[in-house]
Design a protein around this nucleic acid. Structure first.
Lengths: 328, 328
DNA sequence: CAATATTCCGGAAACGATTCCAGACTGACC
DNA sequence: GGTCAGTCTGGAATCGTTTCCGGAATATTG
């Protein structure tokens, strides 16, 4: 059936061990045998069975990526950069989408645990306690969330909010609303924290509109709540929510940004394409993935090197057409 | 270190074989031993090592998904449905993004081959010949492309184009342009084929504007070519290209749809959110993934059952604001 | 040339599960 | 009670690779 190391050994007239050595570390065999082995391997089309290898070495050459929702354009971008970076180091990527369900996360991680060398948990929704139960087992790097004792890569949400608030304040806004994302999302909590601090620092009032799903529909669902509040601008948990808000505002005849300014977060691709183009906060999505992989590789190489490195990436306000002077 | 079947056997006071049987098929052991084994397993937190299992059984419980570009919103949607469906059958998903590079595809498949039970190739860009070299090796189902001898799941592109052409014809359009996607894309060729037939059937003229990358930038790059042609409507290979076209049209002061109608393909989420909302052809993206998984599972269960099943899913024209009466 | 160091190679033991095979035990029946 | 069928269990082989260990061959040195 499949061609094994034995077949190569037989054809090359050497032992398994030599085949293994010749292919793994050519310096450890005589040039002549190396040549023989390589020829035999090529002739038979031999590719070592990674499964068998990982059984003995304990390494799989895979990393597991767990995320809440691939339908949110933010995540594919991160996954792509992870995948690209990982490929560069000969790692393959296992993907698990938990559909925003915290309960699915732990089993998903468990299921993958034996087949990967480490995990990249993207915006995990599980409780701190559940996540910490994996602490000793496998190298884990967490993205978009800070939780000891794992290394993490996050965006500087607070600074992003500071920039947004400064922008809105300069436009004359004094009363703003925040449409919150999932309660289980650390980013949501971090953004809200940053927003509270920033508005408080400028003496602005902040209305918090319930938690919604981080989707267009979620945003649309909160739009009417926002309209009922005495605010001139609304910040959304992320761009999808912001787009949902705008969609519903338009349906209600509310003109953005003349009557109401809207700000998103993430700067997903479509943010710049909609009408009006969305003012938002850009995060280095590719950078998150790349840095995450690098951290994980370090961690896997040396279990307690970067033990609890915390990389915080800068954010950048992108001003587009969805914000304007406060309506009076 | 990790807890193995031996540890469980020792604690339960039975042999490895019994532990294995007790966990795999409880009916094959006495209820009492089953109880003992289960308790021991629970106590030790035992989870069978899937790597070791797959070495002996030859099955991995994984499926490999290869696709050209996760940054195109079409693919995450498909991947998500694949992932969801696969999880339902206890399969994990390996993901490989080839970045639209046909040369990366074959090595990517090879690399994953030993760790998966089958492949779902999403819009593969490699040549027929290269792909066929995998024919005997692993179960493969191809999505968005038809290529013997693999089972495939495709959208009815021709019918979608027929619907678009009928729509445009009714609006008075007689001269239309097509902005083609990658030459390596089967969908692109299939759509063009369908479009040629549909326009010919109605005596309309068709201008073909070069091949571009299937991205917003690709569309923007072709916009000026379209404006230079004597057409009143333009069809794009996909929604991203259409959005790129519109973006550039707006920059050039061309009003859509008053001066030029634009039609996309795929109906990605953002198509309905941009201004003007995009007329496009909807494909059952979730369905593609789901049906693909089902086909693959059948194929894996019985190597030559669905040998060369070809599922063609319906397409549906979605009329939105980017098309209107022909400009004269 | 002898003694020693070095290189290179083959045999065999792992890794952790599954599975075949045969033996031990149970119960039923004559 | 003896025989037989059937159930349940443990031992051992197996998957394909890596790696340890010791022996043979070669090179180095005095």
């Amino acid at each position: 059936m499949a061609v094994t190391i034995k077949d190569v050994a037989r054809l090359a007239g050497v032992s398994q061990s030599s085949v293994c050595r010749a292919l793994a570390d050519p310096a450890r065999v005589r040039p002549e045998t190396r040549e023989r082995v390589e020829r035999a391997a090529r002739e038979l089309g031999y590719h070592p069975n990674r499964v068998a290898r990982s059984l003995i070495t304990g390494r799989t050459g895979n990393i597991g990526v767990v995320l809440p929702d691939l339908a949110n354009p933010f995540f594919p971008t991160v996954v792509k950069s992870i995948q690209t970076r990982a490929r560069g180091f000969d790692y393959a990527v296992f993907l698990s989408d938990t559909d925003e369900d915290p309960a699915v996360e732990v089993p998903a991680i468990r299921a993958l645990a034996k087949q990967v060398d480490g995990f990249l948990l993207c915006s995990p929704r599980a409780t701190d306690e559940d996540l910490r139960s994996f602490a000793g087992e496998k190298p884990i790097v967490v993205l978009n969330r800070r939780i000891t004792p794992f290394p993490s890569v996050t965006a500087d949400n607070a600074d992003g909010m500071r920039q947004v608030v400064a922008h809105l304040h300069a436009l004359g806004h004094r009363d703003v609303a925040y449409v919150a994302g999932p309660r289980t999302s650390w980013s949501n909590r971090d953004r809200l924290r940053g927003l509270r601090a920033a508005t408080a620092a400028r003496g602005m009032t902040l209305v918090e509109a319930g938690n919604v799903a981080p989707t267009v529909d979620g945003g649309a669902a909160a739009a009417d709540l926002v309209l009922a509040a005495p605010v001139t601008a609304v910040l959304a948990y992320n761009d999808l929510v912001a787009l949902g808000l705008i969609k519903r505002f338009q349906a209600r005849g509310v003109v953005v940004p003349e009557q109401l300014s809207v700000v998103g977060f993430d700067d997903i691709l479509v943010a710049g394409l909609v009408g009006p183009p969305l003012t938002t906060v850009a995060i280095g999505k590719e950078q998150i993935g790349r840095v995450g992989v690098d951290l994980l590789l370090e961690l896997m190489a040396d279990r307690d090197s970067t033990g609890t490195a915390r990389r915080v990436l800068p954010t950048q306000l992108i001003v587009r057409g969805s914000t304007g002077p406060a309506f009076r």
